[in-house]
């Protein structure tokens, strides 16, 4: 698989990563190499194999439905760049 410049731009945008234009070709070739490495597995017959969702062969442990968190707003908000009336403030979002 050979990633194009537009693929790199799209992935970078989706991940909100700022990349330099002159680096795009290097990213494209490096990421293509990774995909090609993984693509080698396509040649293995996996018809009778249940896809794995997690490397651990265990299932999810469940928690009983109890509230035991206390209000730590002050501590959390002490590291936030901007707060007001208990709210976190962020640059305006316009839909």
């Amino acid at each position: 698989m050979n990633l194009q410049q537009s693929d790199i731009e799209k992935v970078a945008h989706l991940a909100r990563l700022k990349i330099e234009h002159e680096d795009i070709d290097t990213y494209a070739s490096n990421l293509s190499d990774i995909l090609n490495l993984v693509a080698q597995m396509d040649s293995v017959d996996t018809r009778d194999i249940t896809p794995m969702a997690h490397p651990l062969d265990l299932c999810q442990r469940l928690r009983s439905d109890c509230v035991d968190e206390t209000d730590q707003r002050e501590a959390f908000q002490s590291i936030a760049p901007a707060v007001e009336n208990g709210l976190y403030l962020v640059p305006q979002v316009i839909e």
Binding site: A82, N85, L87, L89, V90, Q92, V93
Partner: peptide, 8 residues
């Protein structure tokens, strides 16, 4: 909020 958005 002075041109910002509040998050709860």
């Amino acid at each position: 909020f002075h041109g910002m958005t509040g998050i709860d």
